[in-house]
Amino acid sequence: MADDPYSVLGVPRDASDAAIKAAYRKLARQNHPDLNPGKPEAEARFKLVSAAHDMLSDPDKKARFGRGEIDAEGQERRPAGNYRRHAETAAGERYSPGMDEGVLDDLFADLFEARGRGGDAWRNPRGGRGGDEAYRLDVGFTAAVLGATERLTLPDGRVLSVKIPPGLVSGQVLRLRGQGSPGRGGAPSGDVLIEVQVAEHGLWRREGRDVLMELPVNLAEAVLGSAVEVPTPGGTLRVTLPRHSDSGRQIRLRGKGVAGDPAGDLIVTLRIVIGTPDAALEAFLRDWQPEHPADPRAGLDAAP
């Protein structure tokens, strides 16, 4: 029992003739074996789709199938993909476009010669292109955030100017076209490939296009709110802290992260530092009766 022709074409049982035809055309286009050589699954799909369409486009067969008088097998359809089977054999010469023999022979000679030489040459069938040269370059944290131009001195004494795009990450490879080994017989030179290593930083770290840092503040700055100086990759900024800030509070400085469009943000996490308390602070705390006493450990749950 073959597949139900309606489900093969993906149409409902009450689909109009036009809808059946449209569904058939769409599927047949995707799977025509003469246009998809080397894809055996396309041929199988095409056969199913053609058989389904043949049944549903014939009013007599469609009605008999609907009444259950015949099953979905229908009759044997012409096998699809026969044209391809002729065209791919030597007999296919019958419709040869008459490509220039010399050009083709050269192309094939190059292909097979290149295949013998190995991977990189295979991608460059002309064969004469110069080789690529690989180097490593250490880039500072700030340079990778803001972008910079670094100088790379090659073993042969040449100095290359390497543009570092903002947002560069460790392991990324920059390609300088045509700066590698010269090609043979007038062929283009290879490329210089530079794998970059971005340095860590004691103050900042990267998370995508954002830069994160922890900012120590004292008790008075956190409670009363005040202007503090924040070191950012682009230079020091004066930032006014909100009143009643607490440890862990995050302040987002828009556009102060990785440069570019859109630029990333600098996310500052406050950390309250008490330092060495003096007698006045001790005395104040001893006498202090909080208006809203709160247990900071409420909600801590040691259960797994």
């Binding site: 003469d34 050589p37 055996p40 065209a87 791919e88 040869s96 476009p97």
Partner: peptide
């Protein structure tokens, strides 16, 4: 369309690609 198909099959014959 025929010309493109003829070229495709010519190259497939040359490359020994048959399915």
């Amino acid at each position: 369309v025929l010309s493109l198909l003829d070229q495709m099959y010519e190259l497939r014959r040359r490359l020994g690609l048959t399915s």
